[in-house]
Computed example of a mutant assay.
Amino acid sequence: MSDTDEIEDSSAPLIEHLTELRTRLIRSALAFIVAMVISFTVWNPIFNFLTEPLCTTMAERGQDECGLILIKLQEGFFVAISISLFGGLVLSFPFISYQLWRFVAPGLYKSEKNAFLPFMIASPAMFLIGASFAFYVVMPLAFDFFLGFQQAGTVGDTNVAASIDFQGSVQEYLRLTIKFIVAFGLCFQLPVLLTLMGKAGLVSSQGLADMRKYAVVGILVLAALVTPPDVITQVILFVVVYGLYEVSIQLVKRVEKKREADLRAQGLWFEDDEDEASEDEMMAEFDADEEDVPGQVEKGE
Rank of each mutant, 00 (worst) to 15 (best):
A134F: 01
A80P: 05
A161I: 13
N48F: 08
D5V: 10
A152L: 11
E52F: 10
F180L: 10
I129V: 15
V137L: 14
K299D: 15
S111C: 02
Q63P: 01
I232T: 12
F103R: 00
W43F: 14
V155L: 14
V255F: 03
L202G: 01
P124Q: 10
L194E: 02
P228F: 09
S278H: 04
L91I: 15
Y214M: 08
T195K: 02
S111I: 04
L251I: 07
F127S: 05
T177W: 07
A209M: 10
A29L: 15
Q99V: 05
F145N: 02
L108Y: 00
A12N: 07
V247C: 11
N159C: 03
S278Y: 02
L54H: 02
A265Q: 13
K179A: 13
G207D: 02
V42Y: 13
R259S: 05
C187K: 01
D230F: 07
P13N: 04
P191L: 07
Q63H: 12
R212C: 04
F49W: 15
Y242C: 03
V90A: 12
Y242I: 08
Q266F: 09
G207Q: 03
A122V: 00
E65I: 13
E281K: 10
E112Q: 11
I236A: 12
V34I: 15
L225G: 06
S10L: 12
E16T: 04
A200T: 02
V138I: 13
F184P: 03
D144I: 07
D275V: 14
Q99D: 03
A162V: 03
F119P: 08
V297F: 11
D275T: 13
S10T: 06
T56W: 09
F127V: 11
E65R: 13
M126K: 03
F180W: 10
A200H: 04
A122E: 06
L25T: 08
I181Y: 06
A80G: 12
R27T: 05
G185Q: 09
F270S: 08
